[in-house]
């Protein structure tokens, strides 16, 4: 807990030195806002969270035996974790078989790499996994997924001569389902919130394959736009879960918090490197720690 607030050490010391509780809370809230924004949490969201924390801090009573100030810090932590859906482990077990997963996200966010990581993860869990290369847009998207599939020993369905992503996706799913595969993962082209034709394509793929889970793959270094973008994706095809990539760099990952707030979807995995094994099941407390400077 102490460690979690590394970047806020000064603010915490100040907070404990301060004589007046209310003043101390206000000062701390200001510092916290700054820390959240520096970590790329959406500005409005940062204000919203801190407002909620302040409200609780000034209206609720601490449990018996706990100092008011100690209790305040636990509220801060709790509210942030709550935003990420509480400190329970996300459910990653497919609810039924076959389980069809579709990955969506911005250009270069890490979808194709993540498709392979996810396939490898479920393969090690004992599932029979297939990958579908439905990105007909990026040059060599198929080669990329095929090479990754070879590395992890997972079959890849694709056909670079077909230009229609919807057709490949539905053919690929049909192919694997008929063969008794249990988890089918569809990689799609990158797109952004202003590319209406590409968003329409995403909608069409989704309505044709009816995925059990649509996962938004989001780059851990994304800034303030994360909220709008996640919202737009969610409005186009309902996002069921989120994977945050590239957390092996220096980015704090606050944009991912915005994506959670915009979609209501939980983060299930994080990417921590380029290799297929650089992949972990997500723990809310870890990201909160990172955002706060753990």
């Amino acid at each position: 807990m102490e460690m979690v607030f590394e970047n806020l050490k000064e603010s915490i010391a100040k907070f404990f030195r301060s004589e007046k509780y209310e003043e101390a809370v206000n000062e701390f809230i200001k510092d916290l806002q700054k820390e959240l924004v520096k970590s790329d949490v959406n500005l409005n969201l940062a204000f919203e969270i801190t407002k909620k924390i302040k409200e609780r801090a000034l209206t609720q009573e601490p449990p018996v035996g706990v100092s008011r100030k100690e209790w305040f810090l636990s509220i801060v932590y709790e509210e942030l974790v709550k935003l990420l859906g509480g400190d329970s482990k996300p459910s990653i077990k497919p609810a039924r078989k076959p389980w069809i997963i579709m990955l969506v996200g911005l250009q270069g966010s890490g979808k194709t790499t993540t498709a392979a990581k996810l396939a490898y993860f479920y393969k090690l869990e004992g599932y029979k996994v297939g990958l579908v290369a439905a990105d007909t847009f990026r040059p060599a998207a198929y080669d990329q997924l095929r090479q990754l599939g070879e590395q992890i020993g997972v079959p890849v369905y694709g056909d670079p001569s077909i230009e229609d992503a919807v057709e490949i996706a539905s053919r690929g799913v049909k192919y694997f389902v008929e063969k008794g595969f249990e988890v089918v993962i569809i990689d799609t082209a990158g797109r952004h919130h202003k590319e209406e034709d590409l968003l329409e394509e995403m909608r069409l793929i989704s309505s044709s394959v009816k995925p059990d889970e649509i996962i938004l793959v989001i780059d851990g270094s994304i800034g303030q736009q994360a909220y709008n973008i996640a919202k737009k994706f969610h409005e186009t095809t309902p996002i069921g879960s989120i994977i945050v990539t590239k957390l092996d760099g220096t980015a704090k990952g606050g944009g991912a918090l915005s994506a959670v707030a915009a979609t209501g979807a939980p983060i299930k995995f994080v990417g921590l490197g380029e290799k297929v094994e650089d992949f972990e099941v997500f723990k809310p407390s870890k990201l909160v720690g990172r955002v706060l400077g753990y």
């Binding site: 520096k38 970590s39 790329d40 911005l106 270069g108 780059d219 270094s221 994304i222 800034g223 303030q224 736009q225 973008i229 760099g249 220096t250 980015a251 704090k252 606050g254 944009g255």
Partner: peptide
């Protein structure tokens, strides 16, 4: 550098 990058853009640039 990606235009959508947040505060990490300056870290990338510096490093």
């Amino acid at each position: 550098v990606d235009a959508l990058t947040g505060n990490d853009a300056i870290e990338q640039a510096r490093f």
